[in-house]
Nucleic acid binder design. Structure first.
Lengths: 221, 221
DNA sequence: GCGCTAATGTACGAACTAGTACGTTAGCTA
DNA sequence: TAGCTAACGTACTAGTTCGTACATTAGCGC
């Protein structure tokens, strides 16, 4: 505390624009996810970075644009993960179940992203609307779902005639709720939806639900 | 603007503690739902009330307690609605579908409540935890679900062995997501989940999903 | 009618916070 | 190695925002 004045630079370069920007984005992601847009403090983000507040404004322009950049990167990560989906070699039922499970896993592994989405919805998705990058990038997952669904429906395995977007909404609902609302749900009902011991239980429940919906006997008209 | 000095009091009493408190809660609910906890402005709430900021602190103590009071009242409304549930005269399948539909309707009719819940989750449900009223009030809906579920499982109609809390989570997921995430979902996928023209579509989809899950043939072990 | 207290209004302050003016330097290039 | 610019740091400000000290009054109980 008294004798340390940080003489060594363990990481080499002092000036590294890309690294500085990435570090700001990392910390900003945490801070926005922690406290919401208005609750997040630019000073706090700066303090937890190896650089200063000046740099945030230098690279991003302002708090609003910083949040947009955070969202853009977060959605980029999702898209990347979705592009690695490899389930189409399975039969439609197994493929959908696997897809649901991967969606489930991804939500669980990225609670910060879930929080950012919640926050963005509180603000009417105005940052997404203002972003060129996020304008209308569908998701790769949607194409995958579309193809599986077509195969399943054609073969007669799937009786429901949902489209891909609605099925995606159904799967996401369950995964999203479990992570996003775990605090209020836990406080009100005394059950931790993200309890590791219950993970498999909920993962199976999701798959069962989606498959049951897609393959149900439709006795009615 | 020049000649009006509000001579008439259309509503009678000038001093009415209950009314003042209720008015503050009404406006606060809107303001918190609009902007989130940190985005909400105490001055703004006061300005949109017939009273002053002083009264907010007089009756509620502070911003934090005001938000808690808003949550308490909002959850109270839910509980009231759930107490009016009257579906147990139906057979289990119809009863669950009806319950799901009523949950669906309630979410749609109370978007502000959904937003408050999202906001409270961003803050780790700390206000619920700090509230005596909200400590551990289960929901009346849960009891209803429990009874329907028991009847359906006993009669063999329901093959799934979910418990009431998990089924409640499943139903709520879909309803909640549709309202809470409509902005980001709409911006990203170009589909408005709350489009009135699609209301019946999603309502049916929810019912189909839940019933399919509960009544599916479980061929496996 | 009188007094007492709950209820209310005004004006202000202390602290915080997004954003900026100004100054400095690393390190590439010619 | 001289100079130029992207990258970076410091110190400050203007405006906002929660909260409060102080002053006032309506209206109930006696």
């Amino acid at each position: 505390m008294t004798s340390v004045d940080e003489p060594a630079r363990p990481n080499g370069r002092i000036r590294d624009a890309a690294r500085t920007q990435a570090e700001i984005l990392d910390v900003a992601t945490q801070e926005f996810a922690r406290a919401g847009y208005d609750g997040a403090r630019v000073d706090e983000i700066a303090a937890r970075t190896r650089t200063t507040k000046r740099m945030i404004y230098y690279y991003f322009g302002g708090k609003e644009q910083l949040f947009t950049a955070v969202l853009e990167r977060a959605y980029g990560v999702i898209r990347e993960a979705e592009q690695k989906l490899d389930v189409e070699h399975l039969d439609p039922v197994a493929a959908i179940r696997r897809l649901a499970e991967l969606t489930f896993d991804h939500h669980e592994q990225h609670p910060d992203f879930i929080r950012l989405v919640s926050i963005e919805n509180i603000h009417g998705a105005e940052h997404i609307a203002a972003s060129e990058k996020l304008g209308r990038i569908g998701s790769p997952a949607l194409d995958v779902i579309r193809r599986i669904l077509a195969a399943g429906q054609e073969s007669g395995l799937f009786t429901a005639d949902v489209d891909a977007v609605d099925l995606h909404a159904m799967i996401s609902s369950f995964c999203f709720f479990r992570v996003a609302n775990r605090h209020t749900f836990g406080a009100l009902f005394g059950r931790d939806l993200v309890d590791p011991a219950q993970r498999e239980h909920y993962r199976t429940m999701l798959g069962d639900m989606v498959i049951a919906y897609l393959t149900a006997d439709r006795a009615t008209d």
